[in-house]
Design a protein around this nucleic acid. Structure first.
Length: 450
RNA sequence: GUGGUUGUAGCUCAGUUGGUUAGAGCGCCUGAUUGUGGUUCAGGAGGUCGCCGGUUCGAACCCGGUCUUCCACCCCA
């Protein structure tokens, strides 16, 4: 290991054949459900203008944005005054683009730009990488994929129900049952904040409350007290949160505190529409989610038996396009975290074995004559939609078999003098060791059977 | 961004108070096997001990820096 040993940048990874196959397994499953729900795919550039990205994810988000240096002499526009005032003042002069931080904001930009060509409500899905300059940890990468589905241009709670069912369908088809869909409503959170006497500090209230299951109610109480919350009301609040209630009981409990809150009716309707399919759905009044633009119901999906944070998140935003000049468009979206779902499936051993197969058959040979004959057989197999390879070098037969074994090829076809003459091929099933002599039509039938 | 942690062969890891030529298992290559892989046996290759610097007669080991990994904050998918 010399100092020349190359490496990918911190928090980024390569995906080899095995990993790519597993990732594709997840992507194709999610994509199939997106299509089944009527979403159309779009793609947007990896980079956006910083004016599009800045200020959309809160102060923290701005720090985590990767900025791209301007081309050419990027210091040219920096004035002495900017430089003396520090990096904050230099930034606008040296970088005007950044890597996208999520898929929702670029989508809002896309909607505004293409508003006249889109039919609303518009359902789009998007599967692309995003970048965050976070400090990497397990399940936290600097480059990771999001799989987003958004419905924009409708306020109906039915959209929330659609996305809930979509989540359920996806995890069902991935074979992972131990997830929990936590939901809450920003109006409820804001109502609670005001009720506690934190009318101007709703966001701080949310982020403090969000830590409840992590640091416990004493510490959260302490934080909220420091913000200036009404101590008596906090006692009432934590009394409510501590109850082991079902969703309806929780709703009734919070309705008693906030009788006029518009979020109550919305959440009630949501559960009514869900009917009996709300099995993995839980109203969690402490769920906050950091992103500033959410205004209505918010979602978070957690893996209950893997320590990895949330694997899917989303919510309703009433005015995301407003900042780009298109007001009064309500949208709702969810984002599946491909990389974390991967980590969950990997840890739980839920990837199917069949993903390993690289080709159905490898054609091996003893000499050049049989090698050349193998080329024709290869074409025949491929013409019959049988993924096949011909060993490309003249090599010892055991080397060829060894290769097939290593890359998990199920069938090896052997061609020698005899096979070329008779056109009856020897085929060995690697898993069982069984061997047959078959003419082409029989061979195709066998290889297609699997 | 703050604090901590990790790094030795392709992989998982040993390595004594600082002392010749740094080891094991697995994997890899060759042969037993010129019509058969996965089992077995024999042999072999592969390391500037993450990198740079310092202390020392002498450093995988001690010190500093740096990169990387993971963890706790922060925040999030």
């Amino acid at each position: 290991m010399s100092n020349k040993k190359p490496n990918t940048p911190k928090g980024t990874r390569d995906f080899g054949p095995a990993e790519s196959a597993k990732r594709n397994h997840i992507i194709s499953s999610i994509k199939a459900h997106f299509l089944n729900y009527g979403f159309s795919q779009i793609e947007t550039p990896a980079m956006e203008n910083l004016s599009v990205l800045m200020g959309k994810y809160g102060e923290e988000g701005d720090k985590l944005l990767f900025k791209i240096l301007n081309s050419g002499d990027y210091l040219q526009k920096v004035s002495q005054e900017d430089f003396e005032q520090g990096s904050q003042h230099v930034l606008p002069s040296i970088a005007e683009k950044g890597l996208r931080y999520d898929l929702t904001v670029p989508f809002a930009r896309f909607v505004v730009q293409n508003r006249n060509d889109l039919a609303f409500p518009f359902r789009r899905f998007q599967i692309q990488p995003v970048w965050r300059a976070d400090k990497p940890q397990k399940g936290r990468y600097r480059e990771f994929y999001q799989c987003d589905a958004d419905i924009i241009g409708t306020k109906g709670v039915f959209s929330e129900v659609e996305l809930t069912r979509l989540i359920q369908d996806v995890f069902k088809s991935l074979g992972y049952p131990n997830y929990l869909i936590k939901i809450n409503h920003r109006e409820l959170l804001f109502g609670l904040a005001q009720w506690c006497g934190l009318a101007t500090k709703e966001i701080q209230f949310c982020t403090a409350l969000d830590k409840l299951d992590k640091i416990g109610h004493e510490k959260v109480t302490e934080e909220l007290n420091n913000l200036g919350a009404d101590a008596e009301k906090l006692v009432q609040l934590f009394d409510l949160l501590g109850q082991d209630w079902n969703n309806m009981q929780k709703l009734e409990g919070i309705e008693a505190l906030l009788p006029e809150n518009p979020g109550i009716e919305t959440v009630k309707t949501y559960f009514r529409y869900l009917k009996d399919s709300g099995e993995n759905v839980s109203l969690d009044l402490s769920l906050a989610r950091g992103l500033n633009y959410y205004t209505g119901i918010i979602f978070e999906v957690v893996a209950q038996d893997v320590k990895i944070g949330s694997i899917c998140g989303g919510g309703r935003y009433d005015d995301l396009t407003g900042v780009f000049g298109l007001p009064d468009v309500s949208g709702i979206g969810i984002s599946f975290g491909l990389d974390r779902i991967y980590d969950v499936l990997e840890e739980k051993g839920l990837f199917p074995d069949s993903l390993k197969v690289s080709a159905q058959a490898l054609i091996t040979h003893f000499d050049e004559k049989s090698f050349v004959h193998g080329m024709d057989l290869l074409s025949e197999l491929r013409a019959n939609q049988i993924p096949a390879m011909l060993f490309p070098d003249l090599a010892k037969i055991n080397k060829q078999f060894n290769y097939a074994n290593k890359i998990d090829i199920p069938y090896v076809i052997v061609i020698g003098e005899e096979e070329v003459k008779t056109r009856v091929y020897t085929v060995k099933q690697m898993k069982t060791g069984q061997q047959h002599s078959l003419a082409l039509s029989e061979l195709i039938k066998l290889l297609k059977a699997e």
